[in-house]
Amino acid sequence: MENTLTPLLNAANQIILGKDRQIRLAVCCLIAKGHLLIEDIPGVGKTTLSHTLARLFGLDYQRIQFTSDILPADIIGSSVFDAERHEFRFHHGPIFNQMILADEINRSTPKAQSALLEAMEEEQVTVEGQTYPLPKPFFVIATQNPSHQIGTFPLPESQLDRFLMRIELGYPNREAERALLLGKQRHKIIAELPVMLTPEQLDELQQAVTEVYVSPALLDYLQNIIDFSRQSDEFAAGLSPRGGLALLTASKAWALMEQRNAVIPEDVQAVLPAVAGHRLKAGSTDAASIVAPILENVPVV
């Protein structure tokens, strides 16, 4: 496992400079079979990150730029009349790819957003009574502009729950910025990137995540976190059962990435901001400060 993921992470770190933690979280999210939401201002490398991951994992990649006039059919495809054969033929939309980058998802209307999110949830698309399965694996990396920007439809909380993690990238530090300014153009490097992981290896990794051991003691800790989030005054609503499950899966994936076959509280704490932040406070992007009271108050031992 070290052999498979370490070079991959190293390669990704060559492209996106100084964002080691975010890259790890993104990879963790993928091997936990979750979808990822990146929230940040334009230009910090959201697209680059997703594109890099798609290359390294060797997945079909499609970017969908969400705009205010995008329609559900623009995402999932539509039946088009074939004049020669005198029948309707389903025209597959961009969603039929293994990795989707849904760029600036909050620029579109809720209608278009829900088309994507429904597909994410059900792993299939139904058009005019016909069901079309989505490819496997299927990942969505959605990016979102901070909601205070004008002309946006922020995802409602119920939809946010469908993303396993939300991360923000932030500005690069001075060193990384300098390297960025000096280096080659990113998209050229990406195009040259080798595929680091075969589909079988990815499948194995995803299988290995489910087999990571979770001790009763750790479940106690996890449940205490969930209970705390539900009872604390800080949050309007606590973690949902789906949220709790997400936290467990993400922790297991993190443990696997740390080359452990059992989850320890460190893993939970590592993924907690990314997993719980958007579930507890949709409006704020400062995940660390959202979960700070949990990390501080819920006893580990």
């Binding site: 320890i264 509280p265 460190e266 704490q269 949990i294 990390l295 501080e296 108050n297 819920v298 006893p299 580990v300 031992v301």
Partner: peptide, 9 residues
């Protein structure tokens, strides 16, 4: 040890 502190930290 703070209550929320993990053994390793």
């Amino acid at each position: 040890r703070k209550p929320g502190e993990t053994p390793y930290s």
